[in-house]
C-alpha cells in the first residue's frame, strides 16, 4: 500500500517537475525553444501512461493497442504535414484581409 502511494507521489512530483521544465523551455532557456517544449510534453504523456495508467503491468495485447495508437498518430501527423511543409505557395492579389 504505502509502496504504491509513494510511487504515485514520485510520479506526480516528476510530472510537476516536467511542467516546470516546460515553462523553463518557454521563458528562460530560449535555446530549448519550441522543440524542447514538444519533447517535454510528449515525455509527460509517456510518464502519465506508465506512471498513472500502469501500462508496464499490462499484457502484450495492451501494449500492442497503445503502440498502434502512437504509430497511427505518427502516420496521420507525419504524412499529413508532408504536404503543407513542401508546398510552394504563389501569392495572389486577392489575399487582402
Amino acid at each position: 500500500m504505502t509502496a504504491i502511494v509513494l510511487r504515485l507521489v514520485a510520479v506526480a512530483s516528476l510530472m510537476f517537475a516536467l511542467l516546470a521544465a516546460e515553462f523553463a523551455a518557454t521563458f528562460v532557456f530560449s535555446g530549448w525553444g519550441r522543440g524542447g517544449v514538444a519533447i517535454i510534453a510528449i515525455t509527460m504523456a509517456a510518464v502519465a501512461a506508465f506512471g498513472f495508467m500502469d501500462l508496464h503491468q499490462e499484457d502484450v495485447t495492451v501494449w500492442l493497442f497503445a503502440a498502434a495508437a502512437v504509430l497511427w498518430l505518427t502516420i496521420l501527423l507525419g504524412l499529413g504535414s508532408l504536404d503543407p511543409f513542401t508546398r510552394s505557395l504563389f501569392p495572389t492579389n486577392s489575399m487582402t484581409p
Binding site: L79, L82, D83, P84, F85, T86, R87, S88
Partner: peptide, 11 residues
C-alpha cells in the same frame, strides 16, 4: 487538388 509535388510523388 494542389498538394505539393513532392508529397504527390511519395503518395
Amino acid at each position: 487538388a494542389g498538394t505539393s509535388l513532392y508529397s504527390a510523388l511519395v503518395f
